[in-house]
C-alpha cells in the first residue's frame, strides 16, 4: 500500500515538474521552382530534400510542393509526410517520400509562370495546420515572381515564428547586367518576411547546409 502511494506521488512529482509540454517537433515546407530554365536545377533540389529528410526526427512533418502558375493549391504538393513516432516506421516513410520525389523529378515539366506568393500562402496554411514547434519554409527558386494576369497575390500574410530560407537563388541574365536587380529582389523578399514577423536567410552554398534547419 505504501509502495503504491509512493509510486503515485512520484508520478505526480514527475508530471508536476514537466509543466507545460514543449512542442519539439519540426515542420518543413519546401517550395520547388519549376518555371523556365530553373527546372534544370532540380538535381540540386534533390540533394537538399535528402539532407532535410536525414535531419528530421520522428514526429516531424515535411512537405514538398512545386511553384507553378498558380501555387496556392493542394494539388501542387508533390509529397508530404508526418513522420511516425516509431523510428522504424519513420525510416520507412522517409524512403517512400524519397521514392515519390524521384517519380516527380522524372516527370516534371517546366511551368510558364512563377507564383511564389501563392506557394508561400499554401506553406503557411500547411504549417499552421500541423502546428509544429519549429516552422521552416524552404524556397528553392531564383525568387523572380512572374504572375499570370488576373492572379491576385497582394495579400498580407503573417510569418510569425516562421523561418524562411531561400536556397540556390541563381542570378538571372538581367541580374548580371544590373546586379542591383538581384540585390533589390532579395531585399524585397527579406523585408516582406521580416515585416510579417518571420526570419529570413539565404543559402547559396549547398555544400554548407548545416544551418538549413538550425535557428
Amino acid at each position: 500500500m505504501k509502495l503504491r502511494n509512493y509510486a503515485v506521488l512520484g508520478l505526480f512529482v514527475l508530471v508536476g515538474c514537466s509543466g507545460e509540454p514543449v512542442n519539439r517537433t519540426t515542420g518543413v515546407y519546401m517550395l520547388l521552382d519549376t518555371s523556365g530554365t530553373y527546372a534544370d536545377e532540380i538535381g540540386k533540389a534533390q540533394q537538399i530534400i535528402s539532407y532535410t529528410l536525414a535531419q528530421l526526427e520522428p514526429g516531424d512533418s515535411f512537405a514538398l510542393a512545386r511553384i507553378d502558375t498558380g501555387s496556392f493549391s493542394e494539388k501542387d504538393i508533390v509529397a508530404k509526410v508526418s513522420l511516425d513516432t516509431r523510428p522504424s516506421t519513420s525510416n520507412a516513410q522517409k524512403r517512400q517520400f524519397l521514392a515519390r520525389v524521384q517519380e516527380f523529378v522524372e516527370s516534371v515539366r517546366p511551368s510558364p509562370y512563377t507564383d511564389i506568393t501563392g506557394g508561400l500562402l499554401q506553406a503557411l496554411e500547411y504549417l499552421d495546420e500541423k502546428d509544429p514547434g519549429t516552422k521552416t519554409i524552404l524556397i528553392f527558386s531564383d525568387l523572380k515572381e512572374d504572375l499570370k494576369e488576373g492572379y491576385v497575390r497582394d495579400i498580407d500574410a503573417r510569418f510569425d515564428n516562421v523561418r524562411v530560407v531561400a536556397l540556390n537563388v541563381t542570378k538571372l541574365r538581367s541580374d548580371n547586367i544590373d546586379p542591383r536587380q538581384y540585390l533589390d529582389r532579395l531585399d524585397a523578399w527579406r523585408q516582406r518576411v521580416e515585416q510579417s514577423g518571420g526570419t529570413w536567410r539565404v543559402i547559396n552554398d549547398l555544400d554548407n547546409l548545416e544551418k538549413l534547419l538550425r535557428t
Partner: peptide, 16 residues
C-alpha cells in the same frame, strides 16, 4: 534506450 523509442514513441517527453 534507442529501441525503447519503438515501444513508447520517440517524441513524448517527461519534463525535458
Amino acid at each position: 534506450a534507442r529501441p525503447m523509442a519503438e515501444m513508447v514513441g520517440g517524441t513524448s517527453y517527461i519534463g525535458s
